[in-house]
Design a binder for these strands. Structure first.
Lengths: 221, 221, 221, 221
DNA sequence: GATGAATGAGAATTCATTCAT
DNA sequence: TATGAATGAATTCTCATTCAT
């Protein structure tokens, strides 16, 4: 178990080994339950070396978040051709997303679960990543969605677009976890399910057919 | 701070105070970072009393999950009239859901983040709760959604419905967190955003207008 | 389990119930591992009552030692007729001893193991009991043994008698534990084994045939 | 006080220091009353180091039992020449035994009292050690003792030999404690006392003069 | 560049014991 | 006579982190 113990590697390589071990350990045990001991052993180095290179548990975890976050956004970016139509971009992006999360479950666990569950230094880190994805989605739906709300308060529309993007990203995140946990579901199928749901819904909005609350539907506390 | 130190309360009352303190602490600090010391102090009692009544950190956390989970499902149930139309039921349910999560942010953090991030005794506990919500949603969309897939492989349709429900619940969960974190967004608005998105999308599906992948859209790994 | 919960018993009865529970718990769990909680529950009373009557764990344990010690010495005394011959007295005493220890294994565990293992307040208590038994044995062998050493240093003889008595009592104690732990051995057989061993040996001593060290048998460290 | 605080020792050395401290502490305070804190302080190291090397209180205690047990059996073995006559072997063995227990009173307390009083992981450990001594003694007395019982039920004889060995070992154990607690008694004298007692008795048995119960000596319960 | 040796600080949990009624 | 409510003080054990080489 663990990397083969090879001595005197260049620093960059060693660091990647450590990050590999850390992502795996954090992803499986969780941030707090993961011990530096275990990570060092899995990386095949001594603990002091981990500290020498990565400084502290907090920094190590942050480095994991950054690396995995970048890998994920790059995978999505690489899967999308910005010259395509909006729906094609979304479709390509979702497939790339689900494919990546399926191939890096520990990294996804770090980003989706661990980083968000352990408060401040980390939440900000993921928030930045998430903002990128939300921005991508927002971009795709912004114009059309605003159309559908042309006649309403534009500020509300602003916020509603944000909400829609949030919902879409949230649905994607949730489906990624579900897809990883449900055997026999491919990334492509998952992407299709969400696309179907989302685009059909957005399509309606675009065409000016939003759903509206039934009359007298006030909520009684 | 913390509860006023009142002495000699009947057990049932003390237990609720402890659960209050525990939900708050777990919700804010996370399961592992929360210390029994802090919880006891916030509850205004000594640690041994917490152990006497709630047995262990694990049991205490489980008790929190159960209590908050029940409160949430009851709130949703109470907000929905099962004799209403499907869209009305969903609308009512979502408003009840977002209202409750907005009023109990720590409880929601416990259920949505903490319980899912800390492995087995707890994951199962939330899974049960989640299953209830997913079942509720599935019920609402099942018939109509199956219609839209009449001509396809029925088994796939089965799984696709599951995926859709998962997506909807995931979106709701995500929006709940977003709504809690974004000032000036009401539960009602959040519910409307999601309803709009979801029902419009489902509406399209029902009417036989699913989105379909553009030709030649294969993903190159 | 435990005594039936009957209310308002006279103090003396309650105390015996508590001591019963305590002897059983101390005997099985050991002094330190036994908890006042367990003892109170087994006795069918609340903890404060145990403290009211028996004062503290230490006092409770001491009371156990005293009660069980007295029961044992009384059993031995009752089994012996002081008008009998020395060997007959020893034989009767041993049988009574082994019979009693077999019938009260927890009490014997308290006296033989627990009380001696837990330092000062208790060691003294057992020492007194033990002294009684040693004195009884010493009395029996003193005269005859001294005979056998007539020609030697009388002070040494004094100490040797003490040593012999100690050896005999030690052998008896050890055999009691062994007999309790070995199925199918009766108290009578155990008594016969020890009697055989001891008396035959003593008989030799009496008749002036002590064993003596082989020449040049010095121990090389 | 305790060991002088010397820093950076090789592991093997530190481990012995820890075992020294542990034997002393366990021997004097008892297994449960001894705290890891006290042991660490006496060893001149911090608690975590004790855990790093010895794993747990239980493992530490087991290590003590093993080390002291081996030291004792080796001392006895080294003191005995198996080519000597039986009585000479017993005599040499007893002297070695009492010498060792006198020189290592804490180790003896650990083996004789603590290990036997604290249940299962440990009892088995000492039982093995004890079995070795009992086997040694049994070997010495087996043939001759069986002679003396030639005409009786051989199965009973078997058990009686076991009982005799048990008695002898028990007497030795008891005398070791007594000798440690009685000032002015040397190991040699103690060995002589027991040898005298035991061998004279065994001598009688060998020569076909066992003690036999007086007629009509039944014990009335 | 790399590590064996070592620790300060804090975590969960348990227990004998008392108070107020 | 009897008890439900409550706690101070340990105890075992773990962990992130550093020093000396």
């Amino acid at each position: 178990m663990g990397a083969v113990k090879t001595k005197r590697m260049p620093r960059a390589v060693r660091e990647q080994q450590m990050l590999d071990a850390a992502v795996r350990t954090f992803g499986q045990r969780g941030y707090m339950a993961a011990s530096m001991d275990e990570i060092a052993e899995l990386a095949g180095v001594s603990k002091p070396l981990v500290y020498l290179y990565l400084n502290s548990k907090e920094d190590l975890f942050t480095a994991c978040i950054r690396r995995e976050g970048q890998a994920l956004t790059e995978a999505v970016r690489a899967g999308v051709d910005t010259r395509s139509s909006a729906d094609r971009q979304l479709w390509d992006g979702l497939r790339a997303f689900f494919t990546h999360t399926a191939q890096h479950p520990d990294g996804w666990s770090v980003l989706h679960l661990q980083a968000r569950t352990h408060g401040e230094p980390f939440a900000a880190e993921v928030a930045a990543l998430r903002a990128e994805l939300v921005a991508f989605v927002t971009e795709l739906i912004a114009v059309t969605a605003r159309e559908a709300h042309r006649d309403r308060d534009p500020d509300l529309a602003e916020r509603e677009v944000a909400g829609l993007a949030e919902a879409l990203v949230g649905a994607a995140e949730s489906l990624a976890a579900w897809s990883n946990a449900t055997p026999g579901v491919t990334a492509r199928q998952t992407a299709a399910t969400l696309m179907n749901f989302a685009w059909a819904g957005l399509g309606n909005l675009v065409e000016g057919r939003p759903w509206s609350p039934p009359a007298g539907a006030e909520y009684r506390p």
